[in-house]
């Protein structure tokens, strides 16, 4: 692993101010259980709006678990449950009464492995879109184009919108999934290692698109790539063994971590 305190690396990205908009998501004393197994221990921290928050930490520390509680996707599995509070604009999304469809329309998610549906490229985006809005054919087309452009995929697929999405390359599929997520205009987008299965060029494209779009969305990205976190994130949270160890801006996390465990991790002294 690279030494992130190396000034050369640190200065690779342009300097930036501490980007902390008002709190979008307030996570409070979150516990998560896989059956009897506890995977999160009292996680508490805030995610600012209109910024990129990165979650880092060694494998198995609970990063994915944390993301999966925010949009309650874990509820697909009856044996999994979460306690504590995740406040989204002042309401606890873990509340039973919180409308799931509403929650998920506000909190989109992109997974590690591309998950295109067995539909055409166009329908991959238009189908979820039509669930929310009544659109004419032309409007739908326009929205599809917009989101494909946002995801930097338009030029590559504009001539084959009716081709099966499964025929795209892995990197293209992932950008399609991002486009699909952006198309329904969520406020928050959760990304779980979105580039870990991709080549450097596709990765660069996706990073670019996150930076371009971060003014329109609140991004929460899990990544194993510390440079990526350093390049992208306004705020970074470090997790270890289901606990949140430290959270702060890039300067604090990569140059001057307060917790020795964070320092060990970002300097690569960790396993």
């Amino acid at each position: 692993m690279m030494d992130m305190s190396n000034p050369a690396v640190a200065s690779a990205a342009a300097p930036r101010a501490v980007a902390a908009g008002p709190t979008k998501i307030g996570i409070d004393n979150l516990e998560f259980f896989y059956g009897k197994n506890r995977a999160l221990h009292g996680v508490t921290f805030d995610i600012p709006s209109g910024a990129i928050t990165a979650i880092i930490g060694p494998s198995g520390c609970g990063k994915s678990t944390l993301l999966r509680t925010i949009n309650r996707i874990f509820e697909l599995y009856p044996e999994q449950r979460a306690t504590g509070a995740i406040m989204l604009d002042g309401r606890n999304v873990l509340d039973r009464n919180y409308n799931l469809s509403d929650l998920r329309s506000r909190v989109g998610m992109v997974f590690q492995k591309p998950t295109p549906f067995a539909l055409s490229i166009f329908d991959n985006i238009a189908f979820p879109l039509k669930h929310y809005e009544r659109l004419t054919r032309a409007e739908a087309h326009e929205r599809v184009e917009t989101s494909l452009r946002q995801a930097a995929l338009w030029d590559e697929v504009k001539d084959k919108l009716n081709v099966s999405a499964l025929s795209l390359s892995g990197g293209q599929q992932q950008r399609l999934c991002i486009a699909r997520t952006l198309a329904v205009q969520p406020e928050i987008v959760l990304l779980d290692e979105p580039t870990s299965a991709l080549d450097p060029i596709s990765t660069a494209k996706i990073e670019e698109l996150l930076l371009e779009q971060c003014e329109n969305f609140t991004f929460v990205i899990v990544t194993h790539n510390l440079q990526q976190a350093a390049r992208l994130a306004h705020r970074t949270a470090f997790m270890l063994n289901g606990e949140l160890v430290e959270v702060g801006d890039r300067e604090r996390m990569f140059v001057n971590p307060r917790d020795s465990r964070t320092r060990d991790y970002v300097t690569g002294r960790f396993g």
Partner: peptide, 11 residues
Amino acid sequence: ETAAAVAGDRG
């Protein structure tokens, strides 16, 4: 700057 400004907006 833009990001922060927009972020403020959204908030």
